[in-house]
Amino acid sequence: MARPRCCVLEVSGLRAGYGAVEVLRGIDLAVATGEIVALLGSNGAGKSTLNNNICGLYRPFGGAIRFDGSDIAGSPSMRIVEAGLIQVPEGRRVFPNLSVRDNLELGSYRRGRPARARNLERVLAIFPRLDERLAQAAGTLSGGEQQMLAIGRGLMSEPRLLILDEPSLGLSPLLVEEMFALIGRLNGDGLAILLVEQNVVQSLAVAHRAYVLENGRITLSGKAADLAQDPELRKSYLGH
């Protein structure tokens, strides 16, 4: 099946897992330029496995991952970062022993180095809270601030596609609102985003399209607005 070259990310027939255990059993997924795509699924559906294979932390068993037209399946993570595919991981993974500034600067370790100063200014304009805490060790930040830092670190590398893995996890309801508003704003500047979430309602509200992952397979996909009305989805995730 031929797809238009519009796609930043195109995953086809991806199989992956750990050791002998196959978690993903043939995933097809695409993110177009300038699009927010939500990947929904409960715990253990395989969302993080998919992420980590796309980002080169694990080697897929089979299938193809095309980013900007070239196959990146099995490439080391540094090459994938170099190409501009940046993951903001679940659990933030900030460097706790380094200052907020150093964390952000390391965001441009592999990519975006020449424009480091300009990007730092831009990130601090998006997250004024980080500006107040530049010299503070990242490990002493609150959960919400660490999430901002993780996203800011990702933005420092001038991503062509940003994967956000459960950005709302562990945040207060107010911060969750802010987080989704931010995702909309980042996308408004033209950034393609793959949003991996359990928070179905708000993800569908901000996304253009969505996929539902269950037991290592895509069981539903389509326009976010349509999925929000899907009786099946409403039943399994919203309870009505």
Binding site: S77, M78, V81, P89, P96, L98, L106, Y109, R153
Partner: peptide, 15 residues
Amino acid sequence: RAVAKERQGARLVGI
């Protein structure tokens, strides 16, 4: 220093 405390995070910034 980043790798010392957070290897996964380090990989994700391309280290």
